[in-house]
Write a protein that binds this DNA or RNA. Sequence first.
DNA 1: TGATAGATAGGAATAGTTCCTAAACAGGAA
DNA 2: TTCCTGTTTAGGAACTATTCCTATCTATCA
Lengths: 170, 170
Amino acid sequence: MKFSLAEIQQKFRERGLKCTPQRAAIYEALSGSTAHPTAEELYDEVSPRYPMLSLNTVYYTLGVLRKAGLVHEVNVGHLRARFDANVSPHHHVICRSCQTIMDVMDDRLNRLSTPKGLPGDFSVTDHQVTFHGYCGQCRKPHSLFTDQGHTLQPQGGFHGKKSQRHQKPR
Amino acid sequence: MKFSLAEIQQKFRERGLKCTPQRAAIYEALSGSTAHPTAEELYDEVSPRYPMLSLNTVYYTLGVLRKAGLVHEVNVGHLRARFDANVSPHHHVICRSCQTIMDVMDDRLNRLSTPKGLPGDFSVTDHQVTFHGYCGQCRKPHSLFTDQGHTLQPQGGFHGKKSQRHQKPR
DNA sequence: TGATAGATAGGAATAGTTCCTAAACAGGAA
DNA sequence: TTCCTGTTTAGGAACTATTCCTATCTATCA
């Protein structure tokens, strides 16, 4: 859920983080989304209100928030990192075709026990379950045969936002 | 387990893939490892036998083998892609500090049922459980406090192979 | 209000991966 | 066996996400 400025200020203060307008805006935008946006998508959302904002600052801020435990980084494939302000334990479903990520809140999955057969000195801190499949929009008869993971060369059919390097208008 | 040349030839033939020496060597090296090597680590392993081998070819070959279902790509964070010739369903344990990946073969995990609360038109094809924690070598008292996921700036303590762009000797 | 540690913005650098192209070659046909 | 053809290879360049560097700015605290 989207946090108010007061809530954000408090969270930052509790963790000894400076509360700059950019930082608050980035966190506000992230907390108001369940789409697991990329750094650039957050930049695109916040940028209109802060035209001087740099993508650099978004990365820096996300790094700071992550270290403070306010943000999780979700990685799907080796493509762009995606971020999530929902830091309570949860899991994900990912469409193999359009890479859309959805949250799965299922307590049963939170309670999986540590697997057997690990080296004795390995200490498990947490785990995550990722379900793969095809969402309604991508679910076509041939999908199962054409796409095993991401493709070497970009193919059509992606209905999300197109990857595009940000260009400052000149 | 490491495949023999005859086995590799057969697997390639069955899938209509040309069996070039480079391709066979790359797949042989991958099948002989449980360390989930990166493209570059495979390159480093095969390269001595094929000095003209290019990293490009390793990427191309891994892409071809992945599409043919002979290889899985495992992604940890947004760092380098890692590959696995073990394509039977299994799960992973990853050290948060050194990024070492180990396989978890646990039938119980293979049988997790599809979570509730998904959009009705989403079809789940498979799932994967990833356990995070700290391996014996990385398990120091302070580890739990300094590292939440990967760091913005590289820190010491990495005991794996150092990331280093390959340079052809001149 | 002033000092200061930390934050921001811009540009450059880095690293992993993919694209492009000409030359080489595996595998089937003759 | 030899020839043909489409695929594979290697090298270089390009691309993209992310990080590094640095000068300037600013939120916070005294």
